[in-house]
Design a binder for these strands. Sequence first.
DNA 1: TCTGGGGTCCTTTTGCCC
DNA 2: TCTGGGGCAAAAGGACCC
Length: 427
Amino acid sequence: MSRRQLQRPGPRPATTGDDTGCTVLHIDMDAFYASVELRSRPELRGTPVIVGGLGGRSVVLSATYEAREYGVHSAMPMGRARRLCPQATVIPPSHDSYAEASRGVMEVFRSVTPLVEPLALDEAFLDVAGAQRRLGTPRQIGELIRARVEDEQGITCSVGVASTKFVAKLASARAKPDGLLVVPRDDVVAFLHPLPVGALWGVGEKTEEALTRLGLRTIGDIATTPESTLRRALGNAVGAHLFALAWGRDERSVVAQEPDKSIGAEETFARDVDDPAVVLRELLRLSERTAARLRATDSLGRTVSIKVRFADFTTITRSKTLGEPTDVARVVYETARGLYEALGLQRARLRLVGVRVEGLVDAESTPRQLALSGGGEEWRAAEQAADQAAARFGAGAVRPATLVDREVRPSGRRSAPSGPGNGNPKV
DNA sequence: TCTGGGGTCCTTTTGCCC
DNA sequence: TCTGGGGCAAAAGGACCC
């Protein structure tokens, strides 16, 4: 599902290299969403298939290799993709089944080693140093995983085997589709230097332009440029980082799943919106979705930010840090509304709005200070009740909060919130 | 061609305190 | 009392990833 393919795949390198010390595996599903869809539509195998929304503003999420032959790739606007490949079958995404397939493959990975670092639904790094005595060399482990994923999930994947994360990642891209590539320690520099700068992890469109202005086209070019020149042109962090990568230096180790740092939701309107009432209703929906996910993951967040994209695609963000972290939709919404109203947009045409909560902490280990915050503990209780109803009867059972707002505004005696701090007088 | 939605990380600016 | 500047956190923007 990688957005960029390596531009010049060249001859598939031999897979016979020495894998000693190459304990980092990068595993990447081939055309993941499309492959999952093909499991239930086997008659479409070998034909161009595009997974993407049907709306006018959607983009390609995944395309089979047959569709890619026509120039279709992920993140491309659907309209363009359909013009490039009119005969393709278009399938709207079913995110639940991708999540389920993802759980399946991650389980395979974790049966090999606990050191699994997922990067996305369809890819992960594995450190297999500790699994070698049990399962064989890194290459053998890679082949074992490929076989098991295909057996158990009915989709193929590609594996890169190297001594560092980013070389493993480049190797899996080169091995695609349905392949495995080992880059021996001694071959790293020779493997890297002919590649275009855009192949480097962290080099996108803008950085590539900047590098082109410096006359640098390959990773080898970066390697022979003074680090100080790179720092000046790209900034300290990026410059130093790319210089190190160009020499195959990458100290980052594989770390098993870290907790999320932010949770949010955003929505592009089908058509631009200039009605503040519509925008506010959307902010409410997004706040509820975000807060529900906070509660579902036992997280609280301290900073609420909104994102507003105008019709011309310029985008701004505004944020506010709360006195204490929250997982209450009402608090998220009121903060978001304040931020939106402070913009004084009148009737500007908006394309997208989003809500995000940052600075996440674990709910269990964070004491709540109800009296200080006016933090909507009663709202929290109501929202938890709604969570439970949704869990039992499906999300449709829960009424939109626009109605809740009018009918059960928490004033005076109404609900008895349970949990720490119960009994604080309100207002 | 006309650009989704979920994120992370880095840089710069701004405001505050001392 | 005014001013400068260091240090810090928050805010804002932007690049990048899949």
